[in-house]
Design a protein around this nucleic acid. Structure first.
Length: 493
RNA sequence: GGUGUCGUGGCCGAGUGGCUAGGCUCAGCUCUGCAAAAGCUGCUACAGCGGUUCGAAUCCGCUCGACACCUCCA
C-alpha cells in the first residue's frame, strides 16, 4: 500500500482562497506545472525560493508514492520588458547589449540556473521544456482561439479579446479582480494602439525588422506572447486539465490570469484544479532590487562576497533558512536570520550524525510513532516545513538525551527514528548532511587527532597551560574541540 | 486608488476560539581542572480600536503599518 493512502494533503488553493483536500485527477498520479525563469540574467534569489518550495512539494508527493510529472519551463523568448506587451524582449535586449546571439544569452543563464539549483540540491523536474521549442504548439493555440472568436489580428499581431471573453467567462477569477476595475485603473501606455482595449494581451507579436528572435506564422514573422508558452507546454505535457499549477505570487496577475483565460478559451474547461503561489522573498525588510543595491546573487551567499552578509553560508544552510518559513509567508532574508539558522542546522546535523552511536534499551522514554505522525501531519497541512523542522528539533533533543544517558530508546524505535529523520531531512526537505568537520581532509583530521591526544596527556598531567593553549590556538584557527563523555571530537567553522 | 498576502515575545518564524510551537539570543543550574559542546530550568508575545462570545491573539468591522501585483528591476 502506498503512503498516499494513509496521508491526506490539505493544500491552500489560491483560486478559492481556502485549504482544500488534495484529490488527484488520476489516483496515484500528480501533474504539476511551475512557471520557470526567464533566462536573461542570473537567477533571482526570490525565484530560487519559489522553486525550492515546489521542489519540497515535489519531493513530498514522491515520498508518498505518487507518480509525479513535474513540468517546469524555461522562458527563452517572448517575455517583454513590460508585461503590458510593449518594450523589448528581455533576452533580445541582453543579446544586443552584450553583442551576442540571443541563444547565447539563453544558454549562459540556463547553465547558471541549473548550477545554482544543483548547488541547492534541487531535484530536476520531470520535463523542462522551452518556449522556443514549442512555437508550433503556441501557433496552434492561437489559431484555435481565433476560431472561437476570442482573439483578433491587427497589423500582424494577435491579441486576446478580454472583454469578449469576460461576457461568458470570468477574467479575474484567480486574482479576484473584475474587468470594470481593470478598465478604470489601467494606465494609457504608448504602443498599445493596436489593441481594442488595454486589458487585451498579446498572443502573437509581429517582430520589428531589427528583432532577431522571430518565427514565421500565419500572421507575421514574429514571436509568441509571454503567457502563451505556459498554456502550450502545460497542455502538451499534462493535458487540458491537470492537478497543480504553481509559481511566484508576482505571477498571479496578469500571467496566470491570462493562462486561465487562454486555456478556457481553447478547451472550454478550467485548466487547473489547484493553484499554488509562493510568497515573496525580501531582504532586510525591503524588496530586493538591483537598482537600490538591496540585492544578493545566490552565488554570493556561498562565497560571502556581498555587503549584506558577514560570512559565507553553505547551500544547505540557506536552504534550511528558507524552509524554516512557510512557503506562503513573506520571508525576510537577513544576515542575523542566516546566522541563527546556521547554528540550528548544524545542531540538527550533529544529532543525526550521532544516531549510529546510540545504544538501544529495552524501553523508550519518547513516543516515536506519535512524533512520526506529527511530522507527517505538518507536511499534510499545506506543506508546513517550519512545523516539520520544529518536530525535528524535538527529535534532536531526544537524541542528545539518549546520548547523555537521560533518555532511552528501543531497537525498533531507534530504527523508526532513523528512517523517519532521514526521510524528512534528506528526502523531503532536501538538505545535505554537511558537518562542520566535513571541510577537514584526512590529513587535517589526523593532525588534529594528534593534538587532541597531546592535550589529553597534558590534562592528565595537570598541565592546563599547555592543554588550554592547544584548545585556544586551535579555536583561533577555526577548529573547535568538543569534550564529551566518550572523548573529544572537533568541528570546524 | 484597486487587488492580494500579512502584522506574533530581544531577533527569526509556526499555530490554535479556552491547553508547550521551534530556532537563535539572554539568565541560572548540571557536567568540566576552567571553558566549549550537550542536558535541565527560567524569561517574555500575539499592531491599535470596536464588536460577536461564558471566553479571542485566533471570528467580524474599522484604523494604522508592511510587502507584492496593477507600472522597468522575480
Amino acid at each position: 500500500m502506498q503512503l498516499y493512502n494513509q496521508h491526506t494533503i490539505n493544500l491552500y488553493n489560491s483560486l478559492t482562497g481556502e485549504k482544500e483536500t488534495f484529490k488527484p485527477i488520476h489516483e496515484g498520479y500528480v501533474g504539476m506545472y511551475v512557471c520557470g525563469p526567464t533566462v536573461y540574467s542570473n537567477v533571482h534569489l526570490g525565484n530560487v525560493r519559489t522553486f525550492m518550495s515546489f521542489d519540497m512539494i515535489f519531493r513530498y508527493f514522491k515520498h508518498l508514492g505518487y507518480k509525479v510529472r513535474y513540468v517546469r519551463n524555461i522562458t527563452d523568448a517572448g517575455h517583454l520588458e513590460n508585461d503590458a506587451d510593449v518594450g523589448e524582449d528581455r533576452i533580445a535586449k541582453k543579446a544586443r547589449l552584450e553583442e551576442i546571439e540571443p541563444m547565447e544569452v539563453v544558454q549562459r543563464y540556463t547553465v547558471d540556473f541549473h548550477n545554482i539549483l544543483n548547488t541547492f540540491n534541487f531535484l530536476p523536474p520531470s520535463i523542462e521544456p522551452t518556449a522556443t521549442g514549442h512555437i508550433i504548439e503556441q501557433i496552434e493555440i492561437i489559431k484555435n482561439i481565433i476560431e472561437k472568436g476570442l482573439a483578433y489580428e491587427v497589423n500582424g499581431s494577435v491579441y486576446f479579446d478580454v472583454l469578449k471573453y469576460n461576457k461568458t467567462k470570468q477574467y479575474g477569477i484567480l486574482s479576484k479582480r473584475n474587468v470594470e476595475d481593470l478598465i478604470h485603473n489601467t494606465r494609457e501606455l504608448d504602443g498599445q494602439s493596436d489593441k481594442k482595449n488595454p486589458q487585451d494581451f498579446a498572443l502573437w507579436k509581429k517582430a520589428e525588422p531589427q528583432h532577431i528572435m522571430r518565427w514565421p506564422s500565419p500572421w507575421s514573422d514574429g514571436f509568441p506572447g509571454w503567457h502563451l508558452e505556459c498554456t502550450a507546454m502545460s497542455t502538451k505535457y499534462l493535458g487540458e486539465h491537470f492537478d497543480i499549477h504553481g509559481g511566484g505570487m508576482d505571477l498571479k496577475f496578469p500571467h496566470h490570469e491570462c493562462e486561465i483565460a487562454q486555456a478556457e478559451a481553447c478547451n472550454n474547461q478550467a485548466p487547473v484544479n489547484y493553484w499554488m503561489h509562493a510568497n515573496m522573498l525580501i531582504m532586510n525588510g525591503k524588496k530586493m532590487a538591483k537598482s537600490t543595491g538591496n540585492f544578493i546573487l545566490p552565488n554570493e551567499i556561498f562565497s560571502g562576497d556581498n555587503p549584506h552578509i558577514t560570512k559565507a553560508y553553505a547551500p544547505s544552510v540557506a536552504r534550511f533558512f528558507m524552509l524554516q518559513a512557510h512557503y506562503r509567508s513573506v520571508l525576510d532574508f537577513t544576515n542575523n536570520g542566516l546566522l541563527a539558522s546556521e547554528k540550528g542546522f548544524y545542531r540538527l546535523m550533529d544529532a543525526i550524525n550521532i544516531l549510529d552511536e546510540l545504544k538501544p534499551s529495552t524501553t523508550s522514554t519518547f513516543d516515536i510513532s506519535d512524533w512520526k505522525q506529527k511530522c507527517y501531519d505538518a507536511m499534510n497541512d499545506d506543506f508546513n516545513s517550519p512545523m516539520v523542522i520544529a518536530n525535528l528539533f524535538e527529535a534532536v533533543k531526544y537524541i542528545n538525551q539518549i546520548k547523555d544517558g537521560s533518555a532511552t530508546i528501543t531497537k525498533e524505535d531507534l530504527a523508526t527514528l532513523k528512517n523517519t529523520i532521514n526521510a524528512f531531512v534528506f528526502d523531503i526537505l532536501g538538505l545535505v548532511n554537511v558537518t562542520k568537520a566535513d571541510t577537514g581532509t584526512d590529513k587535517l583530521s589526523g593532525a588534529v587527532e594528534l593534538l587532541i591526544q597531546l592535550r589529553q596527556e597534558a590534562r592528565a598531567n595537570k598541565d592546563f597551560a599547555m592543554s588550554d593553549k592547544i584548545r585556544d590556538e586551535l579555536a583561533a584557527k577555526g577548529i573547535q574541540l568538543n569534550d564529551g563523555k566518550e572523548g573529544t571530537t572537533f568541528s570546524t567553522n
